[in-house]
């Protein structure tokens, strides 16, 4: 009986999360477009525009290029969308515990984050277009490039929590219960601030946004990876993009801004769920604004070689500095 209960909870939870991911993801994309437009002194499309776009795309046919490998070409968008929804199941949404709360940790999430990217690579190679092929090659390079600073950030956080005596430091529940800012001294706060900045700068690459969008690069590759995608398949990639935005922002929120309103203000449990949820959405929007909207309108696209240099040298070194500060902070307490 309990197995059925668990199964039911998982299925319902997954469906609820998929619905949330779909609605919140597209809304965030709409808000991002609106804010970017206002920063560029434009009015921009209405916030519901991504919904209109998806509704239209879903009504359109899939065009499969002659040189494509059809099964892979069709499978890639489904994998990309499904894997982003899967990540959402491991992330706390406000006061609501993740569906797979006890089952996975930060390391799993870092691995899962590569799945949509790999699905896009597979789809790009399966398209059989030179632009998509170059885009897929670039996506792989970018994937390798931003993994280094991301891994440094994740390891630094977990190591510091372990040093502070937190059991299971890689578990998001443990991170949420012990906000990183609380366990460190001033040096560590500077270190974590650096790591927060790094996570914010990894986000545009993860989402293939300017300046790290060499894999799609409209003016060079005409859409790169996605150049041959149309109709329903493209809608799936588009929705995955929205969900991924939520995932990246929620990850940053879960690690660096884990507080809930109900921790500070006394309220009834029912109100607390709603208030925490609203507070979570506000935090996600804030993170998305600074790490996606503002960055993408304020600079030019990097070359692929520059992306690698930026992530390996500049953010890699910065991450190590952050890590060093956190290490010093941990031993400062001991000394």
């Amino acid at each position: 009986m309990s197995l059925v209960d668990t199964a039911l909870a998982v299925v319902l939870g997954t469906l609820a999360m998929a619905a949330f991911g779909f609605v919140a993801g597209l809304t965030v994309l709409g808000i991002d477009r609106k804010l970017a437009a206002h920063m560029q002194a434009r009015i921009g499309p209405p916030i519901r525009q991504p919904f209109i776009d998806v509704a239209k795309l879903l009504r359109k046919e899939n065009v499969v290029p002659e040189n494509a490998i059809p099964w892979l070409f069709h499978a890639a968008p489904v994998i990309a969308f499904a894997s982003t929804i899967t990540i959402l199941l491991y992330l706390p949404i406000g006061g609501i515990a993740p569906v797979f709360g006890g089952a996975g940790d930060l390391i799993l999430i870092v691995y899962l984050l590569t799945v949509p990217a790999l699905a896009m690579v597979a789809g790009g190679f399966a398209s059989g277009s030179p632009y998509a092929t170059i885009g897929a090659q670039r996506e792989m390079v970018i994937l390798m490039a931003y993994e280094l600073p991301l891994a440094i950030a994740v390891i630094a956080i977990a190591w510091r929590l372990a040093a502070a005596g937190v059991a299971e430091p890689f578990s998001l529940a443990a991170i949420a219960a012990n906000p990183v800012w609380g366990v460190v001294g001033p040096l560590g706060i500077v270190g974590f601030a650096i790591l927060f900045v790094i996570l914010a700068w990894v986000t545009p690459a993860e989402l293939s946004r300017v300046p790290f969008d060499a894999q799609e690069a409209e003016t060079e590759l005409a859409g790169g990876l996605l150049v041959e995608y149309s109709g329903k398949n493209f809608a799936l990639f588009y929705m995955a993009q929205g969900v991924k935005t939520i995932v990246m922002a929620a990850l940053a929120v879960a690690i660096f801004l884990p507080w809930n309103l109900s921790d500070f203000v006394a309220m009834t449990p029912a109100v607390a769920v709603v208030a925490d949820f609203a507070f979570f959405l506000a935090k996600v929007l804030l993170v998305a604004f600074f790490s996606v909207s503002l960055i993408r309108v304020s600079m030019a696209r990097f070359r692929i070689t520059q992306i690698v240099s930026v992530y390996w040298l500049w953010f890699g070194v910065l991450g190590l500095v952050g890590l060093l500060l956190i290490v010093l902070d941990a031993y400062a307490g001991v000394w």
Partner: peptide, 16 residues
Amino acid sequence: AAHELGFDTLLHLTWR
């Protein structure tokens, strides 16, 4: 030129 670099904000600014 800014648009070719992926810097659309400058495109909107200069055209404005």
